[in-house]
Simulated assay, not measured.
Amino acid sequence: MAIGELAALYGLAPHVLRHWEQMGLLAPARAPGGRRVYGAVDATRIALILLAKEAGLTLEQTRYLLTEAADKQARAALYQQHGELLRGRIAAAQESLAIIEHAAACDADDITVCPRLREKVAARLPAGLRPDGGARPASAY
Rank of each mutant, 00 (worst) to 15 (best):
V121G: 05
R116K: 11
G134C: 06
T112A: 08
R75F: 04
A108Q: 14
A74M: 07
H102I: 09
L26S: 10
I46N: 07
A123F: 01
V37F: 03
H82V: 06
H19Y: 15
W20Q: 07
L125E: 08
T58R: 08
A8P: 00
A104I: 12
P28D: 04
V113Q: 12
A52C: 13
G11A: 09
A8K: 15
K120C: 00
E84L: 13
A98V: 05
A40P: 01
E95K: 12
L78Q: 06
I49L: 08
V121R: 10
D107N: 11
D109C: 07
L125K: 07
P32L: 10
A74C: 06
Q80E: 15
S96N: 14
P32K: 09
L57Q: 05
V37E: 14
G39I: 00
A47G: 08
D42F: 02
A47V: 03
G39L: 02
L117Q: 03
G56D: 10
A70P: 01
L6G: 01
E119D: 03
R136I: 15
L66S: 10
L26D: 08
R75M: 12
L12R: 11
A47P: 00
A69T: 02
C114N: 08
R30Y: 03
R136M: 07
Y64K: 05
P137C: 03
A31T: 13
A108Y: 01
R130C: 00
A77T: 15
Q81H: 12
L117P: 00
A13N: 13
A108H: 13
K72E: 14
Y64R: 12
